[in-house]
Simulated scan of single mutants.
Amino acid sequence: MRQIPLRRLAAAFALTLIGAAPAFAGDPIVLRLGNITDPQHTETKAQDYFAKLVSEKTNGEIQVRVFSGGQLGDAGAQLEAIRLGAQDMYAGGTGNFGKYVKDWNITSVGFVFRDTEHFKRVLDSDVYKSMEQKLQDRGFRMVLRNGVRPGKPIISTKPIMKPEDLQGVKVRIPPWEGFVKTFEAMGAKTVSLPWGETYLALRQGVAEVASATVSGFAGQSLHEVAPYLTLVDFFNDSFTIVIGDRKFQQLSPEHQKALLEAGHEAGKYYSKLAVEDQAQVIEEMIDEGAVVIRTSPRPFIEKMGPVVAQMEEQGTWETKGLFQAIQDVK
């Protein structure tokens, strides 16, 4: 039998070790995280904090690069890129998840949650966790799930104090059925536009009302063209970060654990920051000419009863009794 020199065996063994080296040897793993918020938005700040935590927890072996302001496309395009493996992560609300799991459509329906405290309890409920699992089955895993957004009020070019004030008014909406049905229940007309076009739409009269977080309003300077801020929480949803589940499964168990821990800590950081930021932003908007309207949500809520029943009957979400299950969370 032919003898193989020891130096060749050593070289072959070295090459084998190189081939078996983990993916993080040498250059770090870089994960691209996209959003549609401006760089100073509380959500973007939370993502920067998440990126910092991930780097610390992995000793620099994973680096998260944050692309803000829709650099990677609108929310729908970014989620589709994740599904196709062209993007790693997306940060934002939950309204766009309904395209993949119909139950998530309920999070874009007005007044589904009684208040922020009720919403927090729903986040920890079996109902919500079941929805998360369905989303994961479709390829999206939440690494940040506990970001409690302040409720979404409305901003407008004229005062809105009761549902009747929305009769015939043009409301800018994202392409979510829940938003459409909510404002149609108030007698409004809906105009579907990308968030980045909202300022121009309000200025030109294409839209007269928009709904988002107060930070979102300020980030786009919407109060310059729509000075009336009605502080009724029409919508509640969570701030999340999702990663493609295939990408997540490619990471080592240690790296997976680091991402989840960083997500949980960043979620708590965001929830605190968002409340503080909203109070400060409202004061700044008032100083810049905004008019704050505080009114009872009850008349708006009463308009939603028949609409919710109709949406469930029509299969807007797939789980029968989902609305009631959310209401029953104590």
Rank of each mutant, 00 (worst) to 15 (best):
residue 295 T to E: 06
residue 217 F to A: 01
residue 36 I to A: 12
residue 279 A to Q: 10
residue 147 G to T: 04
residue 147 G to P: 09
residue 287 D to C: 07
residue 40 Q to H: 07
residue 287 D to F: 01
residue 236 N to V: 07
residue 46 A to C: 05
residue 101 V to F: 00
residue 29 I to D: 03
residue 323 F to Y: 10
residue 187 G to L: 05
residue 222 L to R: 00
residue 159 P to I: 02
residue 31 L to H: 01
residue 274 A to H: 07
residue 112 V to E: 08
residue 120 K to F: 03
residue 67 F to K: 08
residue 163 P to C: 05
residue 112 V to G: 09
residue 159 P to K: 01
residue 98 G to L: 01
residue 30 V to P: 04
residue 197 E to Y: 12
residue 110 G to L: 05
residue 209 V to T: 05
residue 297 P to Q: 08
residue 303 K to M: 13
residue 91 A to R: 10
residue 21 A to P: 06
residue 100 Y to M: 12
residue 137 D to L: 10
residue 1 M to N: 09
residue 195 W to Q: 02
residue 223 H to R: 15
residue 291 V to Y: 00
residue 167 Q to S: 07
residue 318 E to L: 14
residue 186 M to A: 14
residue 212 A to T: 11
residue 138 R to A: 01
residue 282 I to S: 05
residue 288 E to W: 01
residue 253 P to I: 15
residue 241 I to M: 05
residue 222 L to F: 11
residue 298 R to E: 03
residue 169 V to A: 13
residue 183 F to H: 01
residue 192 S to W: 05
residue 246 R to F: 03
residue 62 I to G: 12
residue 164 E to R: 01
residue 116 T to F: 02
residue 139 G to T: 13
residue 203 R to K: 12
residue 313 E to W: 03
residue 329 V to S: 12
residue 44 T to S: 15
residue 103 D to Y: 08
residue 102 K to V: 00
residue 249 Q to P: 14
residue 23 A to M: 09
residue 171 V to W: 00
residue 293 I to N: 11
residue 204 Q to H: 06
residue 276 E to T: 12
residue 79 L to M: 14
residue 111 F to V: 13
residue 172 R to S: 15
residue 152 K to A: 13
residue 10 A to K: 13
residue 123 L to I: 14
residue 158 K to C: 05
residue 161 M to W: 01
residue 14 A to S: 14
residue 218 A to P: 05
residue 311 M to Q: 07
residue 28 P to E: 00
residue 123 L to P: 00
residue 83 R to H: 15
residue 9 L to T: 01
residue 278 Q to W: 00
residue 42 T to V: 14
residue 107 T to A: 00
residue 266 A to Q: 09
residue 140 F to A: 11
residue 142 M to I: 12
residue 71 Q to P: 02
residue 297 P to L: 13
residue 241 I to S: 04
residue 270 Y to N: 09
residue 196 G to E: 07
residue 315 G to V: 09
residue 112 V to D: 06
residue 234 F to I: 05
residue 83 R to Y: 15
residue 292 V to A: 10
residue 190 T to Y: 12
residue 210 A to L: 04
residue 58 T to Y: 00
residue 154 I to S: 03
residue 305 G to P: 04
residue 151 G to R: 00
residue 305 G to L: 14
residue 82 I to P: 12
residue 183 F to D: 09
residue 54 V to W: 03
residue 329 V to P: 11
residue 310 Q to V: 04
residue 315 G to S: 08
residue 66 V to N: 07
residue 286 I to L: 04
residue 51 A to C: 02
residue 278 Q to Y: 01
residue 188 A to L: 11
residue 117 E to L: 15
residue 229 L to I: 11
residue 48 D to S: 04
residue 292 V to K: 09
residue 88 D to R: 00
residue 134 K to D: 15
residue 269 Y to T: 13
residue 180 V to E: 06
residue 80 E to R: 05
residue 236 N to W: 07
residue 52 K to R: 11
residue 179 F to Y: 06
residue 20 A to N: 14
